[in-house]
Nucleic acid binder design. Structure first.
Lengths: 228, 228
DNA sequence: AATCCATTCTGACAATTTGTCAACTAGGGA
DNA sequence: TCCCTAGTTGACAAATTGTCAGAATGGATT
């Protein structure tokens, strides 16, 4: 058992949020996006699978989506699915990684030129809700707790929820260093708490049709108070 | 489709936390715990299944546990499982309900004669962590997000996470009425945020072997600050 | 105590889903 | 043109799920 899990394959290639060629680094020769040869075919199959998987996971949920459905929706053979993913869980995690990367971009954009803790928290929440509006269901799906899906072993794998939690933790630590967060706050723990709160609160808000802006404000107020 | 879902069967009968005959109501003739007849057999099968399911869900997780495993572990026929539960999800939810009831009892005990918000939050967290220590893995499993497990339809069913969130919300509303919680706090939303935070934070704490007491204190401090 | 009968249990079975693999295809390079 | 490697394919074996006709249990009736 515990059979190595092989290569977690060539880092994402998100497609959607692709670096928009902002001229910053004119040297880099598109590191690993082959435009030709068999590798190109492979990448195209993967992209088709990822898009189909995303559509189905969001639309039907993890369980009601079968690998064969994904293959059919992607227009590739059933066996191809297993050439790109170990199994359904691996595919789901890849989907989560993709969403995480997309959200990271949105949030980074929101954080540009923000100074106070109040603004920062507000902007991060706005970023999250904005992404959620543009990509209904994606965040909820991506934040799925891996332990539920796991077929036993593989305790490893950093899931989006952890990634985001640690991100919030680092951010709070910075804010703490600048004196914007009370010194007695355990910033790492707080990062986890906040992500948990956002997940649960976001689900509640969207299920009950709460007003987006007032929810954001209410959440921000609570977070900021807790941290100051 | 949407086939009625039949009777959500005879309310739990938790076994573990059974009402301890506190003499309060000497009349009630043990409402529905038949000590004889075929109904008794049925109840015993159900109890065996519930215990086996709990053991396996906690030990192996939802996915690695198959209905046939539960039946075997319970020592009943494979078909019996389907006489007591619609399917695996239904069984899992019954397990969650059971855990929820047990935790409710523990928390109620912790809240006896508590007056201030600080103490109340602290005691609730202590209750949760105490239960978690006595029943490793049960809470994490019970708090599992249903949307992941769902096979499509059935949006309804109140899951433990919602139940607890609403409970916290009611509790906070009471505290707010007494002036212990700031009047501008949306207590319902706060209830959800807190449960989400506890879930994520608890998982983080147990995974990283954080000290129980200091985690409780750190969490309580953040919650109280947010609410006041 | 023999019989009846409603309730519950059982496990073989059909239907569905998952993951594998030998054969096949595409297309760059000699 | 032919070769050769990387990639694809779908039929197939294995595993799992949910059903149902028949069997068993035990209290009630005669």
């Amino acid at each position: 058992m515990m059979m190595e899990k092989a290569e977690r394959t060539e880092a994402g290639q998100t497609g959607h949020v692709a670096r928009s060629d902002d001229g910053a680094n004119p040297i880099a020769p598109q590191p690993d996006i082959p435009e030709t040869g068999p590798a190109k075919r492979r990448l195209e199959s993967r992209r088709k699978l990822m898009e189909a998987a995303r559509r189905l996971f969001v639309e039907r949920g993890y369980h009601a989506t079968r690998p064969q459905d994904i293959s059919r929706e992607a227009g590739v053979g059933h066996g191809t699915f297993y050439l790109h993913f170990d199994d359904k869980l691996d595919c789901f995690l890849a989907f989560g990684d993709e969403a995480a990367s997309e959200l990271d971009v949105i949030i980074a954009a929101h954080l540009v030129s923000v100074q106070t803790l109040d603004d920062a928290v507000l902007e991060m929440l706005r970023g999250i809700f904005e992404y959620s509006r543009k990509n209904p269901g994606v965040l909820a799906a991506a934040l799925t707790d891996i332990s539920v899906l796991s077929t036993g072993e593989e305790v490893d794998r950093v899931v989006p929820a952890d990634r985001w939690s640690l991100g919030w933790g680092r951010f709070l630590a910075e804010m703490q260093a600048k004196g914007h967060v009370a010194p007695d706050v355990d910033t790492t723990l707080a990062g986890y708490l906040i992500v948990g709160a956002i997940r649960q609160g976001g689900a509640y808000a969207s299920l009950n049709g709460l007003d987006r802006d007032s929810t954001i404000e209410a959440m921000a107020k609570l977070f900021v108070r807790a941290l100051k």
